[in-house]
């Protein structure tokens, strides 16, 4: 116990788990991610089961534009890297470095969102809507849930970043920052499966 207190006054390697509350928070968040995994799996299962039910509307083949998806993927993957770099800066207690990387992360995330909104608008034009068929419903449910996660992530990271700027990097803000970074990586993991199982598989058949 005493040892831990001492090390936190110096510079613990992992500020996020330096306190008891921090440990609870990180563990709790991992458990939450476990639950999210199942949630997305159910959406994936539903999508894969219903993806051929386009009822005369555009099919996956006709609809998806891989170039756009590749760009979105690149944005999100890079944001995952910048997010982890921000965490390294955080554990070095470098506020400026951390905020810089976080802002880049947020911008990349916003870019991704803009692309997704553009994409959805395009699809609606093509006659592929939430209500047009079971394929439409399951597609927007899956990709839209992911998009909602990205949106929430952006708001959340912004909030916590502003807290950190005002109150510094300490044992109170560090777990929050760390956990939001985990969340961001998780969103990226889900996207890996979306581009594989939705977009690429949609082109295969």
């Amino acid at each position: 116990m005493a040892n831990k207190v001492e090390s936190s006054t110096e510079m613990p390697n992992h500020l996020e788990t330096a306190t008891f509350e921090g440990k609870n928070k990180v563990l709790g968040f991992w458990l939450f991610l476990g639950a999210e995994t199942v949630l997305f799996a159910c959406l994936f299962g539903t999508y894969l089961a219903l993806r051929n039910q386009s009822l005369g509307g555009p099919t996956t083949h006709e609809l998806f534009d891989l170039k756009l998806v590749a760009l979105a993927t690149a944005l999100l993957l890079t944001s995952s890297l910048t997010s982890v770099l921000a965490m390294i800066k955080m554990n070095q207690r470098s506020m400026k470095g951390m905020v810089t990387w976080l802002v880049i992360t947020l911008l990349l995330g916003l870019g991704f969102l803009v692309l997704e909104i553009y994409e959805f608008q395009h699809y609606v034009h093509e006659g592929h809507t939430f209500m047009s068929s079971a394929f439409g419903s399951s597609f927007y449910a899956l990709v839209g849930t992911h998009g909602a996660h990205v949106t929430f992530g952006i708001i959340w990271i912004t909030t916590i970043m502003s807290q950190a700027i005002r109150r510094g990097i300490n044992t109170d803000t560090a777990p929050k920052l760390f956990v939001s970074s985990l969340y961001w990586h998780f969103i990226d993991v889900v996207w890996v499966f979306i581009f594989t199982l939705v977009y690429l598989l949609g082109k295969v058949g």
């Binding site: 386009s54 079971a134 419903s137 449910a141």
Partner: peptide, 18 residues
């Protein structure tokens, strides 16, 4: 909820649902 409130078609077999 989507099916009932917002016109989605997850479960309506006439619209491809199951």
């Amino acid at each position: 909820m989507f099916d009932r409130l917002f016109g989605a078609n997850f479960f309506d077999y006439t619209m491809g649902g199951s």
